[in-house]
Amino acid sequence: MGVNETLGAVITAHPQARVVAFADLSASMILASQGRDDITQEHLDRLCLQARASFDDPLFSLSVEAFGEPHGAVVMGADGIRVFLRSESEPADALCCICDHGIDLAAFVAKIRVTLESITSGG
């Protein structure tokens, strides 16, 4: 299964996920994405920057000092949530997602963790 199909499977399993994108955070670049048709490259670029900012200081440092290196981030706004998960084996690889508030977040995080490691390992 290719990367796009793998991302598409996440949308199929969790319809409340509007966008699921695979990013190289080191290059600030979305490499593949699936989801709503009206998402533009500008949306994806901004999503990727938000992912990078989420894993940056000062909150990154606070987390490292207190509990260890963070690999997941949930950002809640007034109009939706974004979930960013980066690979434990390849920290620059990440999934960036936009979801509805009603999503089963625990199940979604578990799903995208498996998906991310599958993509990162080339499986």
Partner: peptide
């Protein structure tokens, strides 16, 4: 940092940062 992750400049914003998000500890801001 909150400015950078926010999509609505004047709207409320929250970030939860953790190793797994579902176990252990996480930071909320």
């Amino acid at each position: 940092q909150l400015d950078q992750i926010s999509t609505a400049p004047d709207g409320p914003i929250c970030i939860v940062l953790g190793a797994t998000l579902v176990e252990g500890h996480s930071v909320l801001c």
